[in-house]
């Protein structure tokens, strides 16, 4: 009888605690969206921030975040794919391969502030890139690369052995087998993983504070020449991203509506991450259905 009472008691405690935590987490998510959504408007998303006056927007920051993400992906995807293909298809199963796998794991757990410090030391000062989008993209590459390698490796490992053997049996070379048979099959998994990794990169701040910088020059959105210093497309200008902007207005914001701007920017950030997640799920399911002919 006593054991049964204990069982009932424990179950209700578990349910109560779990419900409490889940409510808190859901409440926080709701709070960000609810509080921020009121402040989001087309004007807020497109106009430039104000330093002292009310009514500044986050236009350049949003643009910088997206541009930086694109730059990072352009650098990361080829290298990540290459290293992942090596790990899964070429690397012999020995000690060296195992230690490369350990290195990838260690690299993915390096705290982002360390990536920022390293970027400041090497990219900004030693290579003389200064606070620029390009340094930021390289720092984010350090951050993103191990994820990409792991995603590619696992996706290729998941390709059915028969597909690979059928291709080799037809007389295709190894390179052709990998690029024309295995990569297309692995593509849904790789894409889903890449989008999720992109979501992580989008919200990163600590690695960018000292690489992409904390300021944004006045951008001229009519000037699309990538070499002009005021062009938004110039990769060698300093660029403050959305996440960095939230930090900056919280620590040194002078505008009277700084709290609202931070709330709005947080909501934009969270919504973007949610969109990335949903897109990844939907795309993964869609491609799986398309490739496997399951209704």
């Amino acid at each position: 009888m006593k054991a049964k009472t204990a069982d009932k008691l424990a179950t209700s405690i578990i349910v109560a605690v779990a419900a409490f935590i889940v409510l808190i987490l859901a409440g926080l998510l709701g709070y960000i969206l609810f509080r921020g959504l009121g402040h989001i408007s087309f004007d807020f998303l497109t106009s430039a921030p104000e330093t002292i006056r009310k009514g500044g927007g986050i236009g350049p920051q949003l643009f910088n975040s997206i541009f930086l993400l694109v730059l990072t992906m352009i650098i990361t995807i080829p290298i990540g794919l290459g290293a992942g293909i090596y790990m899964s298809e070429y690397a012999p199963p020995n000690r060296i391969t195992n230690s490369i796998r350990l290195i990838v794991e260690v690299l993915s757990s390096v705290p982002s502030i360390i990536v920022g410090l390293f970027g400041l030391l090497i990219l900004v000062n030693m290579f003389g890139l200064g606070f620029s989008l390009f340094s930021g993209a390289l720092a984010l590459t350090v951050f993103n690369l191990p994820l990409m390698v792991r995603i590619t490796e696992q996706a290729l490992k998941g390709v059915p052995r028969e597909q690979k053997e059928a291709s080799l049996a037809l007389g295709l070379s190894k390179w052709k087998t990998i690029t024309s048979v295995m990569l297309p099959i692995a593509l849904p998994v790789i894409l889903t993983g890449t989008i999720l990794a992109a979501g992580r990169v989008f919200g990163e701040a600590a690695a960018l504070l000292f690489t992409a910088g904390m300021s944004s020059p006045r951008l001229d959105f009519t000037d699309w020449n990538p070499f002009s210093p005021f062009s938004p497309l110039n990769p060698f200008r300093p660029a403050e991203t959305l996440a960095v902007h939230i930090w900056k207005i919280n620590s040194e914001g002078l505008a009277p509506d700084a709290a609202q701007i931070a709330a709005g920017a947080s909501a934009v950030l969270v919504i973007t991450v949610l969109l990335f997640n949903f897109a990844a799920r939907w795309l993964g399911r869609y491609m799986h259905r398309k490739f496997t002919a399951i209704k």
């Binding site: 998510l29 979501g199 919200g203 701040a205 996440a243 930090w247 947080s266 969270v270 997640n277």
Partner: peptide, 14 residues
């Protein structure tokens, strides 16, 4: 899984 992906700066702001 979604909460894992929320940027840390948002948690700090909260």
């Amino acid at each position: 899984d979604l909460l894992v992906g929320i940027p840390s700066v948002v948690y700090g702001f909260l």
